[in-house]
Each structure stands twice: as structure tokens, then as C-alpha cells.
Design a protein around this nucleic acid. Structure first.
Lengths: 116, 116
DNA sequence: AACCAATGCTACTAAAATAGTAGCGCCCAA
DNA sequence: TTGGGCGCTACTATTTTAGTAGCATTGGTT
């Protein structure tokens, strides 16, 4: 159903409306998309470095995600390697709090399991 | 590779470390997971209502996501239907800003395309 | 009682995305 | 000229998702 890279304004995987939030969710809802942004937040790196940081994600997927994220204006490539654009860094600002949250979530879940 | 529902502490799709943030990214990186949380933020609803709100997502996927999100402590079901747990609402607080951001992103992207 | 509509699904097939592995062509330094 | 790192592409196998049909149950209505 998706016509390729999710783009606000046109139908995306799972969404026919093209509402920006749905396009964004489609983009982020692909394997390693969030992980790539997360890793790139610590600075530019090469394809293979990024691959290592993302636990040996297959080059097929990595390359596909990079292209998508580039077309979406979040990732770019220069002498230093792949990195976040200004907009990408901006998005990361929203993503950042998920780090701490996920740890609280992990604690809550393991506590919940102790109860049973 | 994924052993089912992504759970912090155990390996998940695309991650062998089980770091909470990776488990969270795995959970969120599945089709409609983010959309479901987004829609449920406006209050509890029935399975079919939720399906309608999520643009007729197939019941197969919806049911799978619901189970995953329930096991992850984000979604629950009561008399009023499916809804977010306290933790789910908490996560939504982090997700909320993405709405406005996605619209700025949409504007930036279309401006970018005008330039060429 | 018989009907009806809505609910939460399950079953099934087809299409698409992802995983996983191998290796190519390029560049640069030794 | 050999060796290593680079950004990939090619290919197959597996998993996920899409899409459609319909079943079993519940609750109200006639």
C-alpha cells in the first residue's frame, strides 16, 4: 500500500489520509528507523559504524532506511559520514525523553511480573 | 528473531541486547502501534471503533498489536472498551508533541520541494 | 421465540517487509 | 600489489502485514 517513502500529504503504509502524523508514524514504524536516529544523535558516522551500532542490522535494511530518512529530510551525508540534519536533531529532541521513560517502563514491567 | 512481544531485558526484533530503549523501539516500530496509542489517547473505545479510527486496519494486526500493548502494560480493557493504562497515558505525554512537530515537518518538506 | 445488529475476534491467502549472508567495485595507504 | 575499509547490491529465506470472509456470542426488539 505504501508508495515508498512516507510523505505527509500522500497516502502511506496503513494510512490513506496522508495526515502528517500518520506519515510520521509510518516512517518511524519501520524497523530500525528510530534506532538509526537514536544512534546518529551522538554524531556522524560511516555506514559500517552505524551498522555496528545498530547490532549488525542488515545492509539491505540500513540502506533502505537511510534513503527514506534522507528523503524525509532527517538524515544527510557529508565528509564526516551520515548524520542528522537540523530537522533530524529537532526530532531527536522529542525522542530523547524516551530513553529515561523506557527504563522506568522496564522497572515497572519487571515489578509487575514479580507480583504474580 | 523476535521472541514475540518486545520486553525490556530480553532480546527483541533487531536487538540482542534487550536494552529498554531498544525493546521500546521494537514495540513502537510495528505497524499501527503508535497509531493505536495515538487514537486511544482520546478515550476508551471498542475494537471496531478503534479499527475505524485506524483506517480499517485489518483485525489481524489490530488484535496482535492490542495483545502486545496489553502485555507491555500500555493498553487495557474494561467496561468502556480498550483504553490506555496509566503507563500508556504517560507514554502518550511523550508522544503528544509529535503531532505539532509532524505538521512543521510537513511544511518544511513541501517548502523544500518547491525549491527544486 | 425468532430476528437482528453489533461485538470481538479467528482463518485464510497474497503481498510486502525484513533478516541474513555473500561479495563486488572503489579508494587509499603501505 | 596487496590489503583493508568503504558503501553498497544481489540473492534467498523467513516473518510481518494487508485484505477479506465469516463465526460465535451478546443484547435488544418484535
Amino acid at each position: 500500500m505504501s508508495a515508498g517513502v512516507p510523505k505527509p500529504g500522500s497516502p502511506v503504509r496503513g494510512s490513506k489520509t496522508g495526515k502528517p502524523i500518520m506519515a510520521l508514524f509510518d516512517l518511524m514504524g519501520r524497523s530500525w528507523a528510530l534506532g538509526i536516529i537514536w544512534q546518529l544523535s551522538s554524531g556522524p558516522m560511516t555506514f559500517r559504524q552505524l551498522q555496528d551500532r545498530c547490532e549488525q542490522v542488515s545492509p539491505t535494511v540500513l540502506n533502505k532506511r537511510i534513503k527514506e530518512l534522507s528523503q524525509s529530510g532527517l538524515v544527510t551525508r557529508d565528509d564526516a559520514g551520515y548524520g542528522l540534519t537540523a530537522m533530524g536533531k529537532d526530532l531527536y529532541q522529542l525522542l530523547h525523553p524516551f530513553g529515561a521513560w523506557s527504563e522506568a517502563w522496564a522497572r515497572a514491567l519487571s515489578a509487575q511480573q514479580q507480583e504474580r
